[in-house]
């Protein structure tokens, strides 16, 4: 496939035929005997775009490659093949210093706030770090800017939190500090990698609400990575369902949840427990677990677990095709599900 060098200006992020293979570490003798290196195909040909101001959810089981795609999207990893465009600029074409400048515009929120914050830095200083690097000229205003963002993320009174250390506050407050730190540089894109997975239910709802509020207020674009489709519903406009380094299905969230066209998505959606004991799941779950990404199955990667698998599935890898406008699926038999409830 030919990859155009230019990108459309409507998209903030554009990933084209992205691949990331990690070499498998082996002993000297093993390498000698095997004569070649094996690769973990964490991401194996994924393309999608994120529009400005959109919240794009990337969902999948562990080992599906969702975190790697996030890291590729903001230039933390270099792709084995394919291209990443950020606001129309090819990240690979940037020099180190230029990429560093670009990073102001893309910030990250990770899962574990305790691991993301320096335990020996006061919260105010942690958050100010980004300003020191990206806005050294406005040094005198840094403190006020930090207090302002603390207020925005609900850490009130801001002065109280400024001189605290991470261990002195609760988990929910820590994640707010991490959000504040991501937003202090006025980014366009926020990569949120399982940002609320560690929080308790009652805290989770508050954090989700905060993220939605900030997105609207500051006109942010989210790449929201999650294994939890139920949570994604409350924040994402569009979703992509990953399976073993490939996109299985992608589309508007409501459309995908209402009418999933890929058997994997259907199983995934059915597997999520519904908090209502009168509506227990009746569907039988597919056998087995996500296979080894070093030697992925031939043809469609889901075929060994798929209840609908036919002969063609083990031979021909299905292309991602647009069955409904804006709704793509990579399954030979997706037409079967088209008639399903709307």
């Amino acid at each position: 496939m030919k990859i155009p060098a230019q990108s459309s200006p409507d998209f903030l992020v554009e990933l084209k035929e992205l691949k990331k293979w990690f070499p498998v570490q082996k002993g000297f003798l093993e390498v000698l005997l095997a004569g070649h290196t094996d690769h973990v195909r964490a991401v194996d040909g994924v393309s999608f775009t994120i529009r400005k101001g959109e919240a794009f959810g990337l969902a999948g089981e562990s080992g599906s490659g969702k975190t790697t795609i996030g890291r590729l999207a903001i230039g933390l990893e270099t792709p084995t093949a394919g291209k990443v465009f950020f606001d129309g600029i090819d990240l690979a074409s940037l020099r180190k210093e230029e990429l560093r400048k670009m990073r102001r515009r893309m910030q990250v929120i990770f899962q574990d706030p305790m691991a993301s914050l320096n335990p020996r830095l006061m919260l105010g200083d942690s958050v100010m770090e980004g300003l020191r690097i990206h806005y050294p000229e406005s040094k005198s205003q840094h403190r006020d800017m930090v207090l302002d963002i603390f207020d925005k993320v609900g850490l009130t009174p801001p002065q109280f939190f400024f001189n605290k250390f991470p261990h002195q506050i609760s988990g929910g407050q820590r994640q707010r500090v991490v959000i504040a730190r991501a937003l202090i540089t006025h980014p366009d894109l926020v990569l949120a990698d399982e940002p609320i997975a560690m929080a308790d239910v009652s805290v989770r709802a508050l954090l989700l609400d905060l993220m939605v509020k900030l997105k609207n207020e500051l006109n942010l674009t989210y790449l929201f990575i999650t294994h939890d489709l139920a949570t994604a519903k409350y924040i994402c406009d569009r979703v992509g369902i990953l399976y073993l380094g490939r996109m299985a299905e992608m589309g508007e969230l409501k459309e995908v949840y209402n009418r999933p066209l890929h058997p994997y998505t259907r199983a995934l959606l059915a597997a999520i427990p519904i908090p209502d004991p009168t509506q227990r799941r009746k569907e039988v779950m597919p056998e087995g677990e996500i296979p080894n990404p070093i030697h992925p199955p031939s043809g469609c990667r889901f075929h060994p677990r798929c209840p609908l698998a036919q002969e063609i599935c083990s031979k021909v890898e299905p292309e991602l095709r647009e069955l409904v406008p804006g709704h793509t699926t990579a399954c030979h038999f997706s037409e079967n599900f088209l008639k399903a409830r709307k």
Partner: peptide, 14 residues
């Protein structure tokens, strides 16, 4: 405050 996958359920969490 438990997220629910069902689309017809309430849009906002408590």
């Amino acid at each position: 405050s438990v997220p629910n996958i069902k689309l017809d359920e309430r849009e906002e969490l408590f």
